[in-house]
Every structure is written in C-alpha cells, then in structure tokens.
C-alpha cells in the first residue's frame, strides 16, 4: 500500500486547508475568476446543435466511479440543463456499468430541474460496453448515424479518444473536449475545436455553475498552485546554488 512521505504529509494538508479556507471565504464575498475559453464554447456548441436541429453527444469517458468521471458528469449535467431549455437532444453513452445508474439519475435530474422531465429519453443514456474498443466502435457508430452537431468529450480517455474526435470531425460536429489523461490531450488539440487543459478540467463545474462554494475551491486551487510554484522555484534555486554555497546546504538536507 502507498503511504504518505514527508512531502505529502506537509503539502497535502497545507493545500487542503487553503482550499477549504477559500471555499468558506467565497460564501461571504464575491471572487474573481479568469475566463476559460473552452468552457465558454460549450454554450456556442449547444446553440449550434439547436440551430441545426441535430442531437449532441456527451461522452464521459472510460473511467470508473472516480473523481474525474464525477467531474465529467457535473459538466455533462450543466450541458444537459442548457440543452433542455432549447429542446435539444443529448445522447450520453456510458462505458462503465458502475457509473450507469448515477449517469441516468444525473441526466434525469438535469431535465427535471429545468422543468422538462418529458424530454428525458431513457434510450439516450446508453450503456454500450465495458470493453474499450467495443465502446469506441459503438460511440463512433452513434456519432455517424445520429450525425451529431456537437460533441462534448469530458472525462478519462485512452486510445479511443482520437476515434471519437476524428469521427466527430468527419460529421462536422463542433467539438469541446477536456481530460485529465495527459497522453490524450495532444490528440484532442489536433482534432477538436476547443480543449480545456490540466486543472481547468476540475475548475469546469465552478466556472459553469458560478456557485460560490465551487468558485472558492477554484481560487483555492490557484493559491495552491502558487505555493507549489514557490516550492519548485526555491528547490531549483537550492539545487543551482548548493555547490556554490558550500556544505551548509548539504548538511541542512542530510539532517
């Protein structure tokens, strides 16, 4: 089993305290957050699908019941709420049977919260397969057959990422993607119209909902990043100047 080393023992609680403090602060005062272009494009993509009268695809990736998938589901929930207002159909393919009931519930709730429960179609939340390429084949098939006008790819992806993105490109869909899988980001950048990178993926629900609690957490993330950058710069300076400054630094670290 993995256990905390000294660095994790200091940094993780420190960053956690910062994030929680900012969440509590955000409930009392308005915080400023920077603009994220990729997330701003979500409404544009929904609008395009509405104008074209074609459905949208919201894929939450091939993760199990974990934090990235829950985050992807939170973004999907926002997309469906927005699309429900314009009566635009959203198809949600599901890879993991564990997440299926949660996705179904979240999609239904999204329609209900917009006062459009009749728009929810059970067939549009589809468990396809929990084999990676069977899922890829089935999702690509949906993109082709339904000629989706917008494709939202948020969540964990592996080699199938490019299959989805290129198929969407072929049918002329506007595509917005975001993934914590760093190896798939270049494929999305090459094939999608808008890509959110790195921690923007985890900031998405805050950015979209403007909920104070989530905004506070987003500001906390930025401060934690600042702490990390300071530690890195300090470490780089020590590593650079240690030979010049002599043994005193070495003695400090050997204690």
């Amino acid at each position: 089993m993995e256990h905390a080393n000294h660095t994790a023992l200091i940094l993780v609680p420190l960053m956690s305290v910062v994030i929680i403090m900012m969440i509590l602060m955000a409930r009392k005062k308005q915080l400023f957050i920077r603009r994220i272009q990729g997330l701003g494009a979500i409404d544009e993509a929904i609008g395009r699908a509405t104008e074209m009268g074609r459905p949208m695809l919201c894929c939450i990736g091939i993760g199990g019941l974990d934090v990235p998938t829950l985050q992807a589901l939170a973004i999907t929930s926002y997309i469906i709420k927005s699309s429900a207002r314009f009566n635009t159909r959203a198809i949600v393919p599901v890879y993991d049977p564990q997440t299926y009931p949660i996705v179904e519930e979240a999609v239904r709730e999204a329609y209900v919260s917009e006062g459009r429960p009749e728009q929810y179609l059970a067939d549009d939340v589809r468990f396809l397969s929990n084999r990676q390429f069977a899922f890829a084949a089935a999702t690509a098939g949906i993109i082709y057959r339904e000629k989706v006008a917008a494709s939202f790819l948020f969540g964990l992806f592996a080699a199938e990422a490019l299959i989805f993105a290129e198929t969407g490109q072929q049918v002329g869909a506007i595509q917005v993607a975001g993934t914590p899988s760093t190896t798939q980001i270049p494929f999305f950048i090459a094939a999608c119209d808008y890509v959110i990178i790195g921690d923007e993926f985890y900031a998405a629900s805050a950015y979209l909902s403007r909920e104070p609690t989530l905004l506070g957490s987003m500001v906390g993330q930025d401060i934690a990043k600042g702490i990390l950058i300071t530690v890195i710069l300090f470490g780089a300076a020590l590593a650079t100047f240690a030979p010049v400054l002599g043994k005193s630094f070495g003695a400090l670290f050997n204690k």
Binding site: M15, I19, V67, Q71, E200, Y202, T213, M218
Partner: peptide
Amino acid sequence: GLGIGLLAVALR
C-alpha cells in the same frame, strides 16, 4: 495542476 484540481474536487 491536475493533482491540485483532483485534491480540490475530492475535498468537496
């Protein structure tokens, strides 16, 4: 960035 984002969502 992803690690910090993950920590924030997990905490929430």
